[in-house]
Design a protein around this nucleic acid. Structure first.
Length: 479
RNA sequence: GGCGCUAUCGUCUAGAGGCCUAGGACUCAUGAUUUUCAAUCAUGCGACCGGGGUUCGAAUCCCCGUAGCGCCGCCA
């Protein structure tokens, strides 16, 4: 399939058009990313348009959530947000023109009549569309809708990633473009705005592909030149269907943030879902994406959301972070886990603990369970954890005694992991099996099967607490 | 049901007719390192949907199947 060429002659203007009916969806975020990258690539303008024509479902708090999410991801726009709800008079003008020109008409059929006709057509193997042939001037409830008189023709368009696509509009029916003069509907408002805002390229999800011919015909009727279209493949869930909350997948950016994913990781990941830089690089920053982005490399088929790869990317970005920055964003998780009080702890107190787990962290939300032992006065764990390679209680007690004796001789001022290692390693080596002493130490200090190393933990804990925990471990083993 | 789109390891992908014994990444397995877990490094497992063409030669081009997905709202 031949891909069509991007028209450069006019100013590049793209838009991101979410409807504020829910949190920022991962698919919406990806559409935003590609629009953003496209604008950057061609030195164009990126516009944020809020499609809030649905009065019932649109909520200001969702608009805020979407805007916050976009900011968090670092996807900033050049114009907007422009709300469709504030442009009703513009749509009204075109609606009146359409009606005056007899390209649109009022339909007073009832929902029941419409449904009945669709069912009837479906039973005959025809597309379930509705054709209004009524001459009604009014409905009992006084309500009606405005329908676009769909021209019956073949529609062709050149999609920037899919190439030539054609449709037969005689299969469409006269679509409703507005509930009334004050309430335009998506397909119509979208066409008017794309024209009014001089949008040069419409970059959106593949689920809009079948709206495209309808919008092209509407635009043509209104005398508008249609923008170029670029339909992105869908993000799929494990079930290979469009990623949805219903199927149990996490879909909102807010939830990913809450789980401790970094915006860089999310951006990197969704960029790679359906696009690649043309070489083997996998880890890319937004700045690098801006530099490398190319329409030619956009995939045609949908991509299944692979959370394991996201985790891998996230872990990588966490490892590269500045420790203080990392600690700051970890603190809310510690507060939520009741390990520390809000506002009561300095970053410098926590950062040494975070430092020990920076390379073990995949998501921020894992930090409380990893470092909780630092905050406790006594550790609650089964004594078996202290045993290295099945050593008996008495054997472990011997090791712990030796540790207590050795460590108590180290000056508080010398209490660094280097010094601890210097003192303890010779002893551990003498034993032939370092684990005989190092494992009980680490286990006694952390109370965990797996943790950071004993010297590092001891350093953060300090001399007093270290010795105290060794004592507590001994008590556990003494009947 | 109609229309449209898509089709390479389990997943994300490289591949523009010979460079393909199909490359990389995630996952998984094994090993090295190591006091544990990570991290890191090394190795391994693993795919061209099927059938016809075209061609000296096809993962790549064409056709036909098949499958999956999307849309068919007074939602966007």
């Amino acid at each position: 399939m031949q891909k069509s060429e991007i028209k450069y002659q006019k100013e590049i203007r793209v838009r991101m058009a979410p409807s504020p009916t829910g949190p920022l969806h991962i698919g919406t975020a990806r559409t935003a990313l590609f629009n953003y990258l496209f604008a950057k690539k061609f030195n164009g303008t990126f516009i944020l348009r809020i499609e809030d024509t649905d009065k019932e479902r649109s909520k200001p708090e969702w608009e805020k959530a979407i805007i916050d999410g976009l900011h968090w991801l670092g996807l900033d726009w050049d114009e907007g947000p422009i709300r469709q709800s504030e442009r009703i008079s513009i749509y009204q003008k075109y609606l009146e023109k359409l009606i005056a020109d007899k390209n649109a008409y009022w339909c007073f059929c009832t929902p029941e009549e419409i449904e009945a006709q669709k069912q009837e057509r479906l039973s005959r193997g025809k597309p379930p569309i509705f054709e209004c042939q009524c001459e009604k001037k009014q409905r009992k409830d006084g309500k009606g809708t405005i329908r676009f008189k769909m021209p019956k023709t073949k529609v062709f368009f050149d999609d920037l990633v899919r190439g030539k696509i054609s449709y037969d509009s005689s299969l469409f029916g006269d679509m409703i473009i507005a509930k009334n003069l004050e309430e335009p509907l998506y397909n119509f408002a979208c066409v008017v705005d794309d024209f009014e805002m001089k949008i040069s390229h419409v970059i959106r999800g593949e689920d809009h592909i079948s709206n495209t011919p309808k919008q092209i015909l509407l635009a043509k009727t209104l005398g508008f030149e249609s923008p170029q279209f670029l339909h992105l493949p869908l993000i799929l869930g494990q079930n290979k269907a469009k990623l949805s909350k219903r199927s149990g997948a996490t879909t909102s950016i807010e939830d990913y943030k809450r789980q401790g994913y970094l915006p860089q990781a999310l951006i990197n990941f969704i960029a790679l879902l359906g696009w690649n830089p043309g070489d083997n690089r996998e880890v890319l920053s937004l700045a690098e994406l801006e530099k490398e982005f190319s329409v030619e490399k956009i995939q045609k088929s949908g991509a299944i959301f692979n959370a394991q790869k996201l985790d891998w990317l996230n872990g990588g970005f966490i490892r590269k972070m500045n420790l203080n920055e990392l600690t700051k964003i970890c603190i809310p998780y510690l507060i939520e886990a009741n390990l520390i009080q809000s506002g009561g702890v300095e970053v410098s107190t926590i950062s040494p603990m975070v430092a020990l787990y920076q390379e073990r962290l995949k998501k921020l939300s894992e930090i409380p369970e990893l470092i909780d032992f630092f905050f406790k006065n006594s550790l609650d764990f089964p004594k078996e954890i202290l045993s290295w390679k099945g050593a008996g209680d008495s054997e472990v007690i011997v090791s712990l005694d030796k540790l207590a004796n050795t460590l108590s001789n180290i000056e508080k001022a010398d209490w660094t992991k280097e010094k601890l290692s210097e003192v303890l390693m010779p002893i551990a080596n003498e034993l032939g099996d370092r684990g005989k002493i190092l494992w009980p130490l680490r286990a006694a200090l952390s109370g965990k099967q797996a943790s950071a190393g004993p010297f590092e933990i001891a350093e953060v804990l300090g001399k007093e607490k270290t010795l105290q925990r060794i004592e507590q471990a001994k008590e556990k083993l003494t009947p």
